[in-house]
């Protein structure tokens, strides 16, 4: 909850992780490479006082996460973006099984994402059904650039992917988060191309596609697609991080999203623990678009737009009733602690 001038803003962190990148979990040099790459992003774009030592970054644990999100970071509900990467990490990076440990403890605080990989074909469909039965999965996080048995990626419009989307519709998962962002070593950048979103979004109009990291650096291609497809949303994590060291550039990104998609399609995300929500949200609430950008694009970011972006938009996609959910959160373990501390 972000409070300002007597107003309470419900905050959903649309994209965050609870990862285990401890050296014991590295399967090979790629496991180390992956987390070092993340750490470079972390040190490059975080304000100095928010930079962690590498060791903590590899594995920060539950207490740190709860504190950074809910106690200090204004977050009410957080979306656990499960990422598997079994070819780099022995037990996976942050699988839905691992994530479910905190989801089970604080069920109203987290939205748990599962996943599928169409390259598992028929056998994967059964595993997908099983996952849906065994875990309280509310959304999916897809990683088209993930390595698997020599394959360096897949596309949302692969025939087998469509079978999984059909199954997702059947079992009632509506929200599909798709990673389309900067290349992370050692993944192939081709697999982050956004063109496949166009096909899937057209062919599955009842599913929502939240494009995480707004396709950066392919913002242009993303904007053309998102303008045409009603069910495509801008997941703003990674882009958010520019707000500190490149504020003008961030303002231009926001202006573009407002211009092409509008304030109802934009979704805040921190990408925790790459960055922490506290400073991102404080700076976002203080954001004003420079006059020349406002004039050039003919858009502005209003307090109402900020409220939507920080929580209301994605809460709507997940069918969260805000007054009811607020009430629930005030009574869970974290809510009680926060009230006692306040």
């Amino acid at each position: 909850m972000y409070k300002e001038n007597g107003q309470e803003i419900f905050v959903v962190d649309g994209h965050m992780h609870f990862w285990d990148a401890n050296p014991e979990n590295w399967r090979n040099e790629y496991g180390e490479g992956w987390i070092r790459c993340f750490y470079d992003f972390h040190t490059a774009l975080s304000p100095e006082e928010y930079v962690w030592p590498f060791e903590k970054y590899c594995k920060y644990g539950e207490d740190t996460l709860i504190n950074d999100l809910f106690a200090e970071g204004y977050v009410d509900v957080a979306i656990l973006n499960s990422t598997y990467l079994y070819e780099f990490y022995k037990n996976g990076f942050n699988t839905h099984q691992q994530n479910n440990a905190i989801k089970a403890k604080y069920p109203d605080r987290f939205i748990l994402c599962g996943s599928f990989d169409p390259r598992a074909e028929e056998a994967g469909l059964d595993a997908f059904r099983q996952m849906m039965e065994d875990y309280p999965i509310q959304g999916l996080k897809l990683y088209t650039a993930e390595w698997r048995d020599g394959s360096k990626g897949w596309r949302l419009n692969d025939p087998w992917a469509y079978k999984y989307f059909e199954l997702a519709e059947e079992v009632g998962v509506k929200n599909i988060h798709v990673h389309k962002g900067p290349t992370v070593y050692p993944l192939n950048r081709d697999a982050f191309d956004v063109a496949d979103v166009d096909y899937a979004a057209t062919d599955f109009p009842n599913l929502n596609f939240i494009i995480e990291h707004i396709g950066l650096p392919r913002l242009d291609d993303f904007c053309w697609i998102a303008t045409q497809e009603k069910n495509v949303y801008a997941g703003m994590s990674v882009a958010m991080a520019f707000i500190h060291s490149r504020p003008r550039y961030f303002a231009e990104i926001v202006a573009n999203l407002l211009f092409w998609l509008g304030e109802d399609k934009m979704i805040f995300g921190s990408d925790y623990a790459i960055w922490t929500p506290k400073w991102l949200i404080e700076k976002f609430m203080a954001l004003e678009l420079p006059d020349d950008i406002k004039e050039e694009y003919g858009v502005d970011i209003t307090p109402e737009a900020k409220r939507k972006i920080l929580g209301e938009n994605v809460a709507g996609l997940y069918g969260i009733d805000l007054p009811i959910h607020r009430e629930k959160l005030s009574q869970d373990e974290i809510g009680v602690k926060l009230a006692a501390g306040a």
């Binding site: 490059a44 900067p182 950066l216 650096p217 392919r218 242009d220 060291s245 550039y249 092409w260």
Partner: peptide, 16 residues
């Protein structure tokens, strides 16, 4: 918009 998109990596890389 193409220009802003192209600047993404530049902003990222120079920061890193």
């Amino acid at each position: 918009t193409v220009r802003v998109a192209l600047q993404a990596n530049g902003s990222f890389c120079t920061a890193v």
